[in-house]
């Protein structure tokens, strides 16, 4: 278990800022060229369990990136996030220029099901791991991990965490027939129209017909509470 936050001592920064006035003469001996070693391979294993009762999770997308965030609370969702949150399509987010390694499960992850993904990269520096998936029996609900620093993990280290439910804010939570792509409805996925608050926030949960939303096609079975997934990230190589 092992996320270290590197703290750079102030002294170091001052030292670096000083520059060098070293004037000693050094004889540099040319080093014979060595053959390029095979690039170092780093590998992470991600396992995730769907902890909901009846919310299949769209194909789980995992990505390594050194900068950027897939979403931020209070900010507008990107088009790529909207495509994931409304339609379960992770290809936009995984295809972002900042992503240097990605993997996606072939199909949706059903309730109670566990999925495993592998991510490989040739550099560890500044690597962050993100995970995204849509709760498909919602209008625009998604879950995942946003920029978890894995650059300090050693081989064999693992980190266990859980994920929460978010709302992309790009589609009203009508729960109406034809508005959700999951099996409870079989309705529309992505639609470019933004008819909600247009800010990412925590998901308020689904209401369902059983709970008094008379126009909802969802039942009490589709309700959920946090957390949504149990995730283990292991550096295997």
């Amino acid at each position: 278990m092992n996320k270290f936050t590197p703290i750079i001592p102030l002294a170091c920064l001052l030292l670096a800022a000083c520059g060098s006035d070293n004037d000693s003469n050094t004889i540099v001996t040319p080093v014979p060229p060595t053959p390029d070693p095979a690039p170092m391979q780093y590998e992470f294993k991600v396992t995730a369990i769907n902890l909901t009762n009846a919310q299949p999770l769209s194909p789980l997308g995992a990505a390594l990136h050194t900068s950027g965030q897939f979403w931020q609370i209070g900010e507008m969702a990107s088009l790529e996030l909207e495509q994931l949150a409304e339609g379960g399509d992770n290809s936009g987010l995984l295809g972002l220029p900042v992503v240097n390694s990605s993997a996606s499960s072939e199909g949706a992850v059903g309730p109670g099901q566990m999925i495993e993904l592998m991510l490989t990269t040739t550099s560890l520096m500044d690597q962050k791991l993100s995970l995204v998936s849509m709760m498909v029996n919602t209008n625009d609900g998604f879950t995942g991990l946003n920029s978890i620093d894995v650059s300090q993990m050693s081989v064999g280290d693992y980190a266990k965490m859980t994920t929460r439910a978010y709302d992309s804010g790009t589609e009203a939570n009508s729960e109406q027939s034809g508005s959700m792509p999951g099996p409870a409805d079989g309705g529309e996925g992505f639609n470019a129209l933004r008819d909600d608050v247009d800010k990412v926030a925590m998901h308020p949960g689904v209401v369902s017909n059983d709970d008094g939303l008379s126009t909802s096609v969802l039942t009490s079975a589709h309700k959920f509470d946090n957390p949504l997934m149990a995730v283990t990230i292991t550096r295997v190589k």
């Binding site: 309730p111 109670g112 039942t219 009490s220 509470d225 957390p227």
Partner: peptide
Amino acid sequence: GLTTTESNMMVHIHRGNVGDDEAVGGK
């Protein structure tokens, strides 16, 4: 009765009680 089936038969996060506002009847 709210439901007669359980979708996820593995141990999972409880989705919460629903309840209703009817002392007699309701679901």
